[in-house]
Structure formats: C-alpha cells, structure tokens
Amino acid sequence: MPSVPGIHEPVPRALQRVLRAAVLEHLSAERRRTHPPVLHVGVPARAARCFEVRTEDRLDHALRVEVVEAMCRASLARDFVPLVWLTREEEGHDVEDLAWAAAVGAAGFELGVSLDLVVVTRRWWRDPRTGVGRSWRRLRPPRPPD
C-alpha cells in the first residue's frame, strides 16, 4: 500500500479511460484561451456538479473543504463515490492544485470515503500529490463504431 494518498502506477485502465474523457470534455467545452479553474464532482462526460473558482474568491482551506463536501453529498447519498477533478489552464497553478488536493483529502476524511483530486487541462491530467498523469500532443475523440 502506497504511503502517499492519490493515484499510483499502474493506473487501472478503467480510470485511464475516465480521465481521458475528462480531458476530452474540457478540450471540447472550454474554448477560451484564458479561463478560471472549475472544480467538478461526478463522472466526466456524463453528470457532474461544477464550481467556478473566481480570482476574487479568496477561499481558505475550510471553505474549500465545505465546497467539496457540499458537491459530493448528492453522489454519496446514492452510494456512489464521485471523481473530483479541477479543470484549468496549462501553466503554473501548482500551489492552488495542492491546496485543492488537501481540501479534497480532508473532505473525504470527514465524509468517510477516499477522494482523490485530478487536475485536467486541454492536453493532460495529473494527480498533484503523486505526479502520476498522462499527456497527449494531439487528442481526438474516439471514432464511433462502424
């Protein structure tokens, strides 16, 4: 058992597919060059609750934990542990990523479940706690079956 919480290698195929779907969804949904981070809770490309993190919102750790808990409650009431991911721009938000990862971990502890945060951009996903992730130079949606 790894000593650091988060996603570790080897990443299960099912999780890889879900996280690739999160990248594809972000790639197709967010067309702006500059955009605020958005916290998502649920299942990529299916159903998710979203919280846009505005620059003027100065969220401390306790408020972040409250946001994550509130967003997770509906899924947990249906006995489903949701995925939590943060979509953002490509460059430099590592401190914010770690702050959200800490809040997600604390919320999971308070809710009695294991929650992990994955950061998603238009070209990659990454677990900010372990550094495990995947990236693509050119990502295309899968072809429909013939």
Rank of each mutant, 00 (worst) to 15 (best):
R58V: 15
R58Q: 15
R58W: 14
R58A: 15
L59A: 12
L59F: 12
L59I: 13
D60C: 09
D60A: 12
D60E: 12
D60G: 14
H61M: 06
H61N: 04
L63W: 11
L63M: 13
R64I: 11
V65Q: 00
V65G: 00
V65N: 00
E66Q: 15
E66Y: 05
E66G: 15
V68K: 05
V68G: 08
V68H: 07
V68P: 07
E69W: 02
A70L: 14
A70H: 15
M71L: 14
M71C: 05
C72W: 06
R73P: 05
R73M: 08
A74Q: 02
A74L: 04
A74G: 04
S75C: 12
L76C: 07
R78A: 06
R78S: 04
F80Q: 10
F80R: 03
V81M: 06
P82M: 03
P82Y: 00
L83A: 11
L83S: 10
L83V: 07
V84M: 00
V84H: 00
W85N: 04
W85S: 04
W85F: 07
W85Q: 02
L86A: 07
L86Q: 06
T87C: 05
T87I: 04
T87D: 09
T87V: 06
R88P: 03
R88M: 08
R88W: 06
R88N: 02
E89A: 15
E90K: 04
E91K: 13
E91N: 13
E91Q: 14
H93T: 09
H93S: 10
D94W: 12
V95D: 14
V95W: 04
A99L: 11
A99K: 09
W100M: 05
A101V: 01
A102D: 15
A103I: 08
A103P: 11
V104T: 01
V104R: 00
V104L: 01
V104C: 01
G105H: 07
A106R: 15
A106I: 11
A106M: 14
A106L: 11
A107H: 00
G108T: 01
F109S: 15
L111N: 02
L111R: 00
L111T: 01
S114Q: 10
S114E: 10
L115G: 01
L115S: 05
L115V: 01
L115E: 03
L117C: 08
L117D: 05
V118A: 13
V118L: 08
V118Q: 10
V118T: 14
V119K: 09
V120C: 11
V120K: 07
V120Y: 10
T121F: 12
T121N: 13
R122A: 14
R122N: 09
R123A: 05
W124D: 09
W124Q: 15
W125T: 03
W125Q: 02
D127I: 02
P128H: 06
P128Y: 08
R129A: 08
R129H: 09
R129Y: 02
